[in-house]
Design a protein around this nucleic acid. Sequence first.
DNA 1: ATAGATAACTTGATTGTCAAAGTAAATGTC
DNA 2: GACATTTACTTTGACAATCAAGTTATCTAT
Lengths: 138, 138
Amino acid sequence: MSTIVSLNKALTEFYDKMASWESSVVRESEYSLAQIHTLEVLGNYGAMNMKSLANQLGITTGTLTVQVEKLVKLDLVKRQHSEDDRRSITVALTEAGQAIHEHHNALHLSLTEDLSKDFSEDERHTLMALLNKVNQEF
Amino acid sequence: MSTIVSLNKALTEFYDKMASWESSVVRESEYSLAQIHTLEVLGNYGAMNMKSLANQLGITTGTLTVQVEKLVKLDLVKRQHSEDDRRSITVALTEAGQAIHEHHNALHLSLTEDLSKDFSEDERHTLMALLNKVNQEF
DNA sequence: ATAGATAACTTGATTGTCAAAGTAAATGTC
DNA sequence: GACATTTACTTTGACAATCAAGTTATCTAT
């Protein structure tokens, strides 16, 4: 089997397992997958407008409007009108939202520690570097 | 920043981008994300019973029963009663389901080719090997 | 036998989703 | 500057996905 096919399998399998892990972790929390995912993107990439956020999440802005509305009511995110473009709305984490993101991120970090527990420091670094190269191509 | 934190970021970012790619690819098809994902798991890991499949997909068997029902009506999967355990039902792809899986898999392969287009054969191989090591730990 | 565990299914309530249409603001063109 | 077009977001209506809890059938252990 060619390297590219094996690589494809490995990437796909990792994606599947990550999705499965994510959904089981989220199910134990009091928030939904969609909600945690939204907080996660805002925490990892910083505040952004509705369009970018919807794009990151892979949903329409219509769906996102409803989602953000709920998060605002839960005091997890806040909306800020942009000054240069009054149509645009920047969505940002509140302190409470930031706290939830940090907690969720700690779970991710602990997973990463687990997954790479038998790696040498070199191997970790190599995997990280290669993944970053992949991520840039996306 | 420590290697483990960078590695965590890289893994998370890859997962996010993959999820986003998957949802945009699926939106262009006539099937839903949940449906394609089900076919994908059956295609990649082979036929399995309801419990294993639900577990792989990260959903309850109750949800899966409904989902499989739709796929059976669409003639994409079939149910087979297990012989050793009459409670158990094995879900398998039909020929039509297999065809859709193969088409979807081709898209994945083409993505992998794209993402690793600037990689040497050595780099591809290293990334594949490290990912497989990660996958085994899950 | 029979009690308990397991695999799948059913049901009811909730949430997530899109497409399409609507509003308000910015941009381009004449 | 007026007006058409584009852009950013929201609203609405219909439908799909999901879970939790309860049910049925079957298996396992005692």
